[in-house]
């Protein structure tokens, strides 16, 4: 019997909406900023756990489902893997190596691919539809491309799933689409798909004691030129926050004068 493994790819991102950039190095200022699981990845975790629960309640697939969370990042990223375990993920693996630093979406997808390859019987990869820091939404499709497996982005409902196929509904700007796809496959999800649960006490206790393996480039069998900055086709040359200029002009006088002046100003600014 095949054990079904569901892989959830997650990322640690700054837990703030006020992202600050160092103008000299063109990198995000991460010091002193709390890090959290990328918001869209929390839906990926929840969907992985729900699919497991759903498959377990099906007599055909009972006792053969495992949800595994992986992330690529520095050692501190271990905390989000523990959080994933507290939310119902069975185990987690951290992909960490200095050589992974500076990876673009392609090098990231390649690193994830080599990690996923190490699991037998994985049937589904679930990702958040994009990260809140990089914001590209490319890693999922790239990963599916590398594996040559189906990819459905923005999945909003998994209508059916078994060992070999699934039916997925997804939300587009102006319509819903429903696909039947063969497994293994990859999907990306957003907030439409579920409401993530609160961690359980047993999950938190398990997360606290769990040993989380760390896989480096050697364990993934990856050469230096394929990973990190050297394996990247793209590089961020400059990153900046657009300057906004605020100007306040007080309009005085009687109502008629004020209205006239306001009308003239709006006209001048091509707003009217």
């Amino acid at each position: 019997m095949i054990k079904i493994k569901i892989i959830v790819c997650i990322k640690q991102v700054p837990g703030t909406t006020e992202i600050k950039i160092n103008p000299e190095t063109n990198t995000l200022i991460r010091e002193g900023i709390e890090t959290v699981i990328n918001a869209f990845d929390t839906y990926a975790i929840e969907e992985g756990v729900r699919l497991k629960e759903r498959l377990l309640s099906n007599p055909e697939t009972k006792e053969e489902v495992e949800v595994i969370a992986i992330t690529m990042g520095p050692h501190q990223s271990e905390s989000i893997l523990r959080e994933a375990i507290s939310l119902g993920v069975d185990r987690a693996v951290l992909l960490s190596d200095r050589a992974f630093a500076g990876a673009d979406t392609w090098a990231t997808a390649l690193t994830l691919q080599n990690a996923i390859k190490k699991f037998d019987d994985w049937r589904l990869v679930i990702l958040g539809k994009q990260t809140l820091d990089g914001d590209t939404g490319q890693v999922g499709p790239e990963l599916a491309q590398m594996f040559n497996i189906p990819f459905v982005g923005y999945a909003s409902n998994i209508l059916e799933i078994n060992r070999t196929r699934m039916i997925v509904k997804r939300l587009m700007d102006d319509r819903y689409e429903t696909f039947e796809i063969k497994l293994p496959a990859a999907i990306s999800v957003g907030k439409e798909i579920n409401i993530p649960r609160v961690p359980s006490l047993r999950g938190k206790l398990k997360a606290k004691n769990e040993q989380i393996p760390v896989w480096n480039k050697g364990e993934l069998g990856l050469e230096d030129e394929k990973i990190g900055l050297s394996g990247s086709y793209t590089q961020v040359v400059k990153i900046f926050i657009p300057k906004t200029i605020h100007e306040v002009k007080m309009i005085t006088g009687g109502p008629d004068e004020q209205a006239e002046e306001l009308y003239g100003k709006l006209k001048e600014l091509s707003i009217l």
């Binding site: 649960r197 609160v198 961690p199 006490l201 047993r202």
Partner: peptide, 20 residues
């Protein structure tokens, strides 16, 4: 349901009966 899922009903029940 969420409270149940979070194991809070398990607290006072002995482990041999599915509690904590």
């Amino acid at each position: 349901k969420e409270i149940g899922q979070s194991d809070l009903f398990r607290l006072f029940i002995p482990e041999k009966y599915g509690g904590m």
